[in-house]
Design a protein around this nucleic acid. Structure first.
Length: 622
RNA sequence: UGGGGAUUGGUGUAACGGUAGCACAACUGACUCUGGAUCAGUUAGUCAAGGUUCGAAUCCUUGAUCCCCAGCCA
């Protein structure tokens, strides 16, 4: 995704060394065109293996980007594989959301949406093989007892069933598989090293009994493989070359290798009963990153959804992919960010502001401009011409759609004698350095005219309810008049945005702030709820927007067919309201705007991110 | 306390025994019909202490700090 060349990160270095030495062989032509193009090139095959027990978040985007980018860069393959080995936590809803998010992020898995659960038969056969080789046994200890007997770094673990005869273990494993035994009564364990300082090697559980319906295999199984047993086999079966995971699995790598080595033991001998050796991929670990001001674990995200702190997994304040999408983030901005962060073994803390910068950057280039007034203040232009019936005339002016993109062109915008401006853009007695509208001051109305404030009208409470101005007809289009010397005859410091009162359309606008008030929620008290930002959502009604926005901006749903799955991805049109920030249409909008809300909902807009505002910063300091 | 990792400006990341560089942020200035964008510039760093070497971010020793591991979760 990166446009500037950079040095290779450590995983790319490993891959290039492997490619140079021919570690993983080359692709052979198969039936599809992509395979024919790959033929003869060194094999690079990555995968993204989420458990479908929650929605994907920005951290997953880094992994998706990494694995997908490597496959693209080295003309390899990238699999989407569900690591669905625990029916107690997994749901179809999560499978669907993950497919949607990976597709949206541009992960190119072609037709390969795969399920670990599709390999259960093969895994079971391998397990029987390990029992027969004396490398695994059925253990009758309860979970509690295993825990009590786990030992300490100095004291080894114990199990009285370690030396159970192979035949007995085989019989019991078969019974476990057939549903003879209740949940938790027995496990299949690998016979490795009860004294290992790495607790993962103290005879880890390979299978546990769980009588539960699985979203993919239904009731076919009542024993389910554990992560360590399953994961390397999944990679092996799929021919994965580089099995990339996060740092916390470093302690599991010896186990990853042990299981495959155990299966391969004896398999290279001619005439062995097991068959040829199986593929042994390489596990490589990289560091996750942590954005500030949010929680990231699926566990905590789920808690916030369940506790109603947010409206759902796709709440625009959530760090989930679906939340960011609803907020108005683009997939490109997300991928650019995770690409910029880099790939290392150092855990990093990324300021949330960096995420905001990356969308700003992208949206600045692509978002059409429009005007909206969030907190309206009426302005009457007292010298504006009226028609024969006494109504203020309406003029059509040219509006540049995107100054960053000349090809976007211009459109027409209506202007008349009564407009709304932002309350913040007027002050009766302004502080030093304020160059918006105040009595006696002249400002430019964007793409329209220069106006000078001549007075205000107040209500009984003393609040300004109307501002009177005069306009300068010589400034039509917002251009300063030019004198005979070719130079502008006057200049104004401020340009403010506006919406014609007669043409304005009402909309609801939702403003978001960070979910938490400190960088690391729960850091002080151990409970992230103590750091919740009570004001993370601000809903403004009666915002005034250009009719052009109401006429064109929509929430759009695309229906795709991906690898046999129907995938629906909804995205709101994105735009910039000048001087305010980037906004997108929310699915809560009425159906006439493409949303799912009722007719009264009208148009609902989310603010993705503000524009940078050096005045707010400066005046905040004073 | 045992094992596994990590440590370079505010943040992220390069430099793989030979000039500590890049990006973001911050700050200055220029420009500007968005107090945006753009352009130019400035500030600022090798966890510590020893050692090896002509030369150390890099190699060695000792220490410090942070992260992960005792689920029948992944």
């Amino acid at each position: 995704m990166s446009d500037t060349p950079r040095t290779l990160h450590f995983i790319e270095q490993i891959i290039e060394a492997d490619n140079a030495s021919g570690t993983w062989g080359v692709w052979t032509p198969r039936d599809n065109a992509a395979d024919k193009l790959r033929a003869g090139k060194p094999r690079v095959h990555t995968r993204f293996p989420p458990e479908p027990n929650g929605y994907l978040h920005i951290g997953h985007a880094k992994s998706i980007n990494l694995n997908d980018s490597l496959a693209r860069k080295y003309d390899g393959k990238f699999n989407l594989r569900f690591d669905d080995t625990n029916p107690a936590k997994e749901e179809q809803e999560y499978v669907d959301s993950i497919i949607r998010d990976v597709v949206w992020l541009g992960g190119d898995f072609e037709d390969r949406i795969l399920y670990a659960s599709d390999y259960f038969d093969q895994m079971y056969a391998y397990a029987v093989e390990l029992v027969k080789k004396g490398k695994a046994y059925v253990c009758d200890l309860s979970a509690d007892d295993v825990s009590k007997r786990r030992g300490t770094p100095q004291i080894p673990a114990t199990s009285p069933f370690r030396d159970r005869p192979v035949e007995e273990s085989l019989k019991l494993l078969d019974e476990m598989r057939r549903g003879v035994h209740p949940d938790g009564s027995r496990t299949l364990r690998a016979k490795i090293d009860l004294a290992s300082p790495n607790f993962n090697l103290r005879d880890p559980v390979m299978y546990r009994i769980v009588h539960e319906t699985h979203h993919n295999t239904g009731d076919a199984w009542c024993i389910y493989p554990m992560y360590d047993w399953a994961h390397g086999l999944e990679d092996s079966i799929e021919g994965i070359t580089h099995s990339i995971c996060t740092l916390e699995f470093e302690n599991h790598r010896p186990l990853y290798d042990w299981f495959i080595d155990a299966i391969n033991e004896g398999r290279s001998e001619p005439g062995n009963p097991w068959g040829p050796p199986i593929h042994h991929p390489q596990q490589i670990e990289f560091a996750k990153f942590r954005p500030t001001h949010t929680v990231m674990s699926k566990r905590n995200l789920l808690k916030m959804v369940q506790a109603g702190i947010v409206r759902g997994w796709d709440d625009p304040r959530m760090p989930t992919i679906s939340g960011l999408r609803r907020r108005g983030y683009t997939a490109q901005a997300i991928r650019k960010l995770v690409d910029d962060i880099g790939v290392t073994k150092t855990e990093s803390m990324i300021d949330l502001g960096r995420l905001e910068n990356s969308v700003r950057d992208h949206l600045n280039r692509i978002a059409p401009r429009a005007m909206a007034v969030l907190k309206p203040l009426k302005v009457v232009i007292t010298n504006w011409p009226k028609d024969s019936s006494g109504m203020p005339i309406v003029e059509e002016l040219d509006y540049v759609i995107n100054p960053e993109d000349e090809a976007a062109g211009t459109r027409k915008i209506q202007f008349s004698g009564e407009i709304f401006i932002e309350r913040d853009d007027f002050m009766e007695s302004p502080p030093k350095g304020y160059f918006r509208l105040f009595p006696g001051n002249e400002v430019r109305l964007r793409w329209a005219y220069f106006v000078t404030c001549t007075g205000v009208e107040k209500n009984a409470a003393g609040e300004v309810v109307r501002v009177n101005c005069t306009y300068d007809p010589a400034t039509r289009g917002g251009d300063a008049p030019v004198g005979p010397d070719g130079k502008p005859t006057k200049k104004v410091k401020g340009t403010i945005h506006w919406v014609s009162a007669r043409h304005a359309v009402d909309a609801e606008v939702r403003l978001f702030d960070r979910l938490f008030t400190c960088e690391v929620p729960g850091d002080r008290t151990g409970n992230y709820e103590d750091d919740l930002n009570k004001n993370s959502l601000d809903v403004l009604k009666g915002c005034k927007i250009e009719p052009h926005v109401a006429a064109t901006a929509r929430f759009r749903v695309s229906e795709l067919q991906v690898a046999g799955h129907a995938v629906r991805i909804g995205e709101g049109d994105r735009l910039q309201f000048e001087r305010l920030g980037y906004f997108c249409v929310d699915p809560d909008s009425a159906t006439s705007f493409g949303g799912a809300g009722n007719a009264d909902a009208g148009l609902v807009l989310n603010r993705t991110v503000t524009l940078k505002d050096s005045w707010a910063k400066e005046s905040g300091k004073a």
